[in-house]
């Protein structure tokens, strides 16, 4: 398996995961954030039937609409804070859901799947104690962002998420 140049691979993966932690958790903190969550996940369509696998505290969430409902239930002023994260490239040439013309490896690392593990704190509402969470997320390319009109589209989407309050 031909790997990308190590520095390019590292930089691309770190950038992708950094963008993820800097956008996803602030969205959870926003009052209307839950409505924007679906945008972070892969969307199943006839060309790419794979649904995101979302597990929150052991509860399976069927789709992003249900996810929105889950996060709507969290008290106002909930606050997530990322305290550490790390990432690995899992597959430098991820092809699930890829259009046929994009099956070849991408030299600039745009087709990787990336494992991101995030550790941080969360406070639900103002009165409760701060808790710790771990979120293990697999990011995959957003094929739309690699297509004809990539502008304004997220480059990476969540394919798998295992979230747990651990403290």
């Amino acid at each position: 398996m031909a790997h990308l140049p190590e520095d390019l691979e590292t930089k691309t993966a770190v950038d992708a995961s950094e963008t993820f932690v800097n956008t996803y958790y602030p969205t959870l903190n926003k009052p209307n954030g839950p409505k924007e969550l679906a945008d972070f996940y892969v969307r199943a369509n006839p060309d790419s039937p794979l649904k995101p696998d979302i597990s929150l505290n052991g509860n399976l969430v069927a789709d992003p609409a249900e996810l929105e409902a889950v996060f709507e239930k969290q008290p106002a002023k909930s606050h997530y804070e990322v305290q550490s994260f790390d990432c690995h490239v899992l597959n430098p040439n991820y092809n699930i859901g890829a259009p046929d013309d994009l099956l070849e490896p991408n030299k600039s690392g745009k087709k990787m799947s990336i494992m991101v593990m995030v550790n941080g704190s969360v406070r639900y509402g103002e009165e409760t104690e701060t808790q710790g969470f771990t979120d293990s997320v697999v990011l995959v390319p957003n094929w739309d962002a690699l297509g004809k009109s990539p502008k304004g589209k997220r480059k990476w989407l969540i394919q798998s998420q295992t979230y747990r309050v651990i403290l």
Binding site: N57, G58, N59, K73, S78, Y124, T128, Y163, V165
Partner: peptide, 9 residues
Amino acid sequence: SKFPIPLAA
């Protein structure tokens, strides 16, 4: 209220 997302098994 501490765990708005219930802690399941």
